[in-house]
Amino acid sequence: MKLSKNFTNPLAANNPVIVQILGICSALAVTVKLEPAFVMGLSVTFVCAFSNLFMSLLRKGVPSRIRIIVQLVVIATLVIVVDQFLRAYMYDVSKQLSVYVGLIITNCIVMGRVEAFALGNKPWDSFVDGVANGLGYAFILVLVAFFRELFGSGTLFGFDVLARFGYVNNSLMLFPPMALIIIGCIIWVHRSINKDLQEK
């Protein structure tokens, strides 16, 4: 029961991007096309899940005075692993994501979950929490990228969709501010459904 709640919470009611407003910067940068957004979402999920797992395993041995440094080392290691694998096996995507893979290290979601959850919970719970938060992030990224690619380039995953109906691409959608506006709209819809999130 607790585990499933752990899993579903970050996907909707406590989504890291649209409720906690974390990880916005990369959400603006890599959502021009679906493919990089998708890969970025998976990368963050991987990093988040395993940094949670490892930090939870280490939680009893970590000296509390240097725990932030230890967290950073673990997260940075995982990010480099992801980066190296992308460069070897998904070269095109890794070029599109460019510095943003490296910047997963500074993604507040990852460190936030390690500090807030993994240090006080068992490994399996922490792992699930990491996966769920990563997926919550990935879901928003893919949603934003869906609208931006569809209306900005007229394609989805690179396949022509709107172009064949004579749609003229709106290049405004390709600029980062539109990602912010779309996220704003998602937050608006989300809060109108979940009334308890509205601030009085």
């Binding site: 000296p63 240097i66 230890v70 080392v73 290691t77 480099i80 692993v81």
Partner: peptide, 25 residues
């Protein structure tokens, strides 16, 4: 766990493990 010796040994071991892992990769 908050003694200097423990922290230094902890960091050295951590860095060696992580460093060799990444170098191998």
């Amino acid at each position: 766990k908050n003694s200097n010796t423990y922290i230094i040994i902890y960091t050295v071991v951590m860095v060696v493990i992580v460093g060799s892992l990444l170098a191998f990769l």
